[in-house]
Simulated assay, not measured.
Amino acid sequence: MTPPTGSRPTMIDEYLAALEDPARTRLAELQNLVREELPEATEAIKWGSPAFVHPRGTILLAISAHKAHANFTVTPSAKEAFADELEGLETGKGSVKLPYDTPMPEDLLRRMARHRLAEFEQDGVNWM
C-alpha cells in the first residue's frame, strides 16, 4: 500500500513493504484504521514493531505481523475493557490475534483505539 500523494513514507510503510501478503495487506488495513482513529499519533518502530505514539511521547498501541496472524496490542487495561467482546478471539496480555484468514473486527478495534487514547489522556495510563 502506498502512502497518500504528497506524503513521505513512514517507518511503518517501510516495515509493510518488507512483508508478504497476507501480512502486508492486514497490517496496511490496521495502519489505516489507526490513522483514522488516532490522527495526531506519530508512527514509529518500537521493539521491532509498528507503534503509534501520542504527541506527548507515550505509545498508544502497536501492531505486528506473524506467520498466521497480526497482533493489535494495547495496554492490558484497555484490552480488559472489551473482554466480553473479545470472547472467541485469542488474546494475550494486551494483544488481540487477528488471523489472516478471518475478517477483521474493525468496529471493535476502532473502539479499542479510541479507548486507549482516552485512557492515556484522561487517566494517565502509560504503556506497559
Score class of each variant (00 low, 15 high):
I59C: 13
R116L: 02
Y15I: 14
F52C: 13
P50A: 15
P103D: 15
A70R: 01
L108N: 03
A65I: 08
T73R: 04
L89H: 14
N32S: 11
S77P: 14
P9F: 12
A68Q: 12
A113E: 10
T10E: 08
A51Q: 03
G6P: 09
S7H: 10
E36Y: 04
L38H: 01
T42I: 12
E37S: 03
A18I: 08
A23D: 10
L108G: 04
L30Y: 02
E14K: 01
A51H: 02
L60I: 09
S64K: 01
R110C: 07
T5Q: 14
F72C: 05
L61T: 01
A62F: 05
F72Q: 04
P50L: 15
T73A: 10
S49R: 01
I63M: 13
M128R: 01
R110A: 07
D107P: 00
E14F: 08
R56H: 07
A18P: 06
K97F: 12
T102F: 05
R114T: 06
L19P: 13
E43L: 09
L61Y: 01
L19H: 10
A51F: 03
G88M: 11
Q122C: 06
G57T: 09
Y100K: 06
T5K: 08
E36L: 13
Q31N: 04
D13K: 01
D21Y: 04
L109G: 09
E119M: 07
L33G: 05
A62I: 10
I12P: 00
L19A: 12
E40M: 10
A44Q: 07
R8S: 14
T2Y: 07
I63C: 07
L89Y: 15
K46T: 03
A62E: 13
P9V: 14
A113G: 10
E80R: 02
A28D: 12
Y15Q: 11
A18W: 01
M112E: 08
W47E: 09
A78T: 15
R114M: 08
G94R: 02
L61V: 02
G6C: 14
E106P: 05
A51P: 02
A83W: 00
F120R: 02
P55C: 07
S77F: 01
Q31D: 09
L61Q: 03
T75R: 04
T58R: 11
R111W: 00
P39V: 13
L19K: 06
A51E: 02
K93H: 13
A65H: 04
L16I: 12
V34K: 00
N71G: 08
P4K: 08
P55T: 03
I59M: 15
